[in-house]
Amino acid sequence: MALFIEDNAPVIVQGMTGHQGMTHTGRMLNAGTHIVGGVNPRKAGQEVTFHIDETDKDLNIPVYATCSEAKEATGAKASVIFVPPRFAKSAMLEAIEADIELIVVITEGIPVADTAYCVELALQKGIRIIGPNCPGLLKLPESADASDKGINLGIIPDGIVSSGPLGLVSKSGTLTYQLMGELADIGFTACLGVGGDPIVGTTLVEALQQFEADDNTKAVMMIGEIGGNAEQDAAAWAKEHMSKPVVAYIAGFTAPEGKQMGHAGAIVSGGKGTAQDKKNALEEAGIPVGKTPGQAAQLLREIVNGGTPQA
């Protein structure tokens, strides 16, 4: 099971020559990601130099004018997008039209209509989008072989966890990192941030489907938040189809109605989308919900260790 993308897949970065793109491309390269090019029509034909700590050598990454040109030259299968919101729709459309198989959109503040248009087009073409407004995807190596580096697409810190039997999916970037740290001694197969916008390219349900099908994933941590009904949908799917244990944490129990809390989609409106509603749905599906991130981690730890979780 590839968990969204096969190991060592060639990756391009749209917006690689900007400050954020440069910073995180360097991080991704040092994490072992096989980055083969950047995309910026104004700097096409240039190269950007990155230092690889492990080898203490510099690596020159070429810049291409378009995604299609980059794919033709490199065989790229994934793209990570670091561009300002006003350019994000064009960047997504360019990657979709180039038939890039996986598009990870880090940018926040993208108009919902732009995201909806691109997500629908991607679905029609069988292309997966992760995000927007997300930390991305971290896949840990399947073996202890030093040549197996896994893959890091986005801004998730890779040095705080090792390989293990857990999967993690989250609507919150910060809570992704916190739960990774809480469970670092057990380790992960993959950590995925789906994003907190009202419309995202990959849902909690789709993430659970991937983890359920992955032989190396034995249990899953799911982090939700107020707003929308993604957690209720995930609870319903898990109740019918999930054979592996899932533990959840829901952020926003004290959030006032009508006030947006962080993410664009994190808002209780008309009495719907409350943390309590989500907690009820998850627990009815047999998914324990921690009152705090630390308690959620402890619940999953007890399950992995063969015990019965005590909420």
Rank of each mutant, 00 (worst) to 15 (best):
G164T: 03
P165I: 00
L166V: 13
L166W: 12
G167D: 07
L168H: 10
S170A: 15
S170R: 12
K171R: 15
K171C: 06
K171P: 06
K171F: 01
S172G: 10
G173N: 07
G173K: 02
L175A: 07
L175F: 13
T176R: 03
Y177A: 14
Y177P: 02
Q178A: 12
L179A: 03
L179W: 04
M180T: 04
M180Y: 03
M180V: 02
G181D: 14
E182M: 12
L183Y: 11
L183H: 10
D185T: 14
I186K: 13
F188W: 11
A190S: 15
C191T: 14
L192V: 13
L192R: 05
G193H: 06
G193A: 10
G195I: 05
G195N: 00
G196I: 10
D197C: 10
D197G: 13
D197I: 10
D197Q: 08
P198A: 13
I199L: 14
I199P: 04
V200C: 11
G201T: 00
G201P: 05
T202Q: 07
T202N: 11
T203L: 10
L204T: 01
L204H: 05
E206T: 07
A207L: 07
A207Q: 09
L208Y: 02
Q210N: 09
Q210S: 13
F211P: 13
E212M: 03
E212R: 02
A213R: 12
N216S: 15
N216G: 14
N216R: 15
T217N: 06
T217P: 13
T217A: 04
K218H: 11
A219Y: 07
V220A: 02
